[in-house]
Design a binder for these strands. Structure first.
Lengths: 120, 120
DNA sequence: GACGATATACCGGTGGACGATATAGTCTAT
DNA sequence: ATAGACTATATCGTCCACCGGTATATCGTC
């Protein structure tokens, strides 16, 4: 999506819409961080709250290091035993583009469903 | 999502929101079929048009047989050398629920982005 | 001091997504 | 006619995102 060259193999950080393969957990994590800095466990709880999805620990921490590698989030110095993360400017741009596309596509689908057709 | 028990292993057809693991291609295919019956190649073109995403042949035909196995789409008798598919009632329900969730989550993320926070 | 909640990290398995490739029919231009 | 581009489907092997399980450690509280 994001207009420029759709499906990317991509480990290229600068390229937007590089939200992993399809972006499930990544989108949720970035959306959560858009509200403020959080650490892994906090993200798990927040995402469970606003999306109703509980990410498995493996998914969470692997996604975090992937997103950090891609420059979409950055780690802050850890207090206590927490590793908080912050959304970067790049991450915010990527998230905005991705969510806009996602919402647009969802609306197309819903409109088509309402148009009576389909089940025929 | 879909309110009832989030992350499902699931090959259970009757259970909604069983759109594969995370549902990328599946959602696109179902949304395309919501407009009318189509065969694989036609789906590829339509999806490219409304979502800007070109699904690889492997992705397309494997997703189709998965969706058929799950009862979300059904194959029609093939004319010419085309295998057209139709969205089932179950598929329409699953799609509606999934898209509604997807749009809702996208809106949460976008609202959070607009609230100035994040990049801090 | 046992227990549950908080918190992170690593591991192996599964399967969805992908590109490549094979096959074949159609249509057009040369 | 026939080479080349497009239509159309199917299968295969690879990769890696996602997952649950598990290990580890700290904290609060009972």
């Amino acid at each position: 999506m994001t207009s420029s060259s759709p499906q990317r193999r991509d480990q290229d950080p600068a390229e937007l819409s590089a939200l992993g393969r399809y972006a499930g957990p990544a989108t949720l994590i970035l959306s959560s961080l858009a509200e403020g800095d959080k650490h892994g466990y906090g993200l798990t709880k927040d995402i469970e709250g606003f999306a109703g999805i509980r990410l498995a620990p493996g998914t969470m921490y692997e996604a975090l290091s992937r997103l950090e590698r891609q420059g979409l989030i950055e780690a802050l110095e850890s207090h206590d035993r927490r590793r908080p993360y912050r959304l970067t400017a790049l991450g915010a741009t990527a998230l905005r583009a991705h969510l806009a596309d996602q919402r647009r596509v969802a609306e197309v689908g819903l409109r088509r469903l309402e148009s009576g057709e389909g089940t025929a």
